[in-house]
């Protein structure tokens, strides 16, 4: 063995602890700020321990509504964001499983053309075609709707490719056995393929949920109504450096509430998260 003795290991711990501090500090600092009164925040430096405004600040943000963004409360924002994140995650998984299933387990004319049609979309994030996509949304009357927030972000090939790769590792014997037993394709999908894909679905779900939750540019464009804002967009609208009346304590509370759900998903579903990240990018 190497490096049993020596100082390598304690130094490694010191490095990691410093790393954790750097990574965690902005969040800790935000949390501290979210428990202070506005006057304390406006007079730097900020204390390093939580203040006494935790309950008033959080209850005001969650139930009271924030004037700066049209009096919408944070619960509404969280609900909108949740709908968007879940819609994107589940929608993408749903259409991807179906199309991957079709491409792998059937032979039909134009199969490869369809595959390519989907595959090409892998390359182009929505950011590069925002303006025309926005026009399409206007034409379809999808501004300020959940469908408008969700559907354009589902049009991507990553999940389809992932399921396709996994389906191709399913042994042919399994398909033949199912056919001999008289199971049709949909039965095969439901009783054999889906149970086998459970871990893949979980892994992909974590990644897509975070992707949906953290979207910025797209919800910024398709929501005009304050009631339809996602929490990230509302947060952005609350902040203004030009004038002095940005309610910073509310901004900090909202930031913490915006960060908490996806962080919990990552931490609690860590195993699938790591797997999903590594698999979907390879």
């Amino acid at each position: 063995m190497i490096e049993k003795r020596g100082i390598g290991r304690p130094i490694a711990h010191v490095v990691l602890i410093l790393g954790v501090l750097i990574v965690a500090f902005p969040i800790y600092y935000t949390f501290i700020a979210s428990t202070q009164s506005l006057t304390t925040i406006l007079r730097p430096p900020l204390p390093l321990t939580p203040g006494d405004q935790f309950v008033p600040n959080y209850s005001e943000a969650i139930f009271g509504g924030i004037g700066r963004i049209g009096g919408v409360d944070v619960l509404t924002l969280l609900f909108n964001t949740l709908v968007m994140a879940l819609g994107i995650a589940l929608g993408k998984i749903f259409i991807s499983i179906l199309s991957a299933f079709a491409v792998v387990f059937f032979r039909f004319p134009l199969r490869m053309l369809f595959f390519w049609l989907i595959f090409v979309t892998l390359m182009l994030p929505v950011e590069v075609r925002i303006l025309p996509t926005y026009k399409v949304m206007v034409d379809l009357g999808m501004i300020d709707t959940y469908a408008g927030l969700i559907l354009p972000l589902i049009a991507s090939a990553t999940a389809t490719l992932l399921f396709r790769q996994f389906f191709m590792t399913i042994p042919s014997e399994l398909v033949e056995a199912a056919r001999i037993d008289g199971a049709g394709p949909l039965r095969f999908l439901k009783d054999i393929l889906l149970p086998l894909s459970k871990t893949n679905i979980a892994a992909l779900f974590v990644i897509l949920f975070i992707y949906g939750w953290t979207q910025y540019l797209w919800p910024l464009l398709v929501t005009n109504d304050n009631q339809m804002n996602t929490i990230v967009i509302a947060l952005r609208k609350m902040v203004s450096f030009a004038d002095a009346d940005t309610p910073w304590h509310m901004v900090m509370v909202t930031s913490i509430l915006a960060i908490l759900p996806p962080v919990l998903v990552v931490v609690l579903m860590q195993r699938w998260f790591v797997r999903g990240l590594v698999e979907s990018e390879k």
């Binding site: 990691l16 790393g19 954790v20 990574v23 902005p26 969040i27 600092y29 935000t30 700020a33 975070i210 939750w213 953290t214 979207q215 910025y216 990230v232 947060l235 952005r236 902040v239 910073w248 901004v251 900090m252 930031s255 915006a258 960060i259 996806p262 962080v263 998903v265 990552v266 931490v267 860590q270 998260f273 790591v274 990240l277």
Partner: peptide, 18 residues
């Protein structure tokens, strides 16, 4: 070390700006 991954870019920007 992994959880900043879940922080939205716009929120990350706000925190640093703050």
């Amino acid at each position: 070390l992994i959880w900043p991954y879940a922080v939205a870019p716009a929120v990350a920007g706000l925190l640093w700006l703050f």
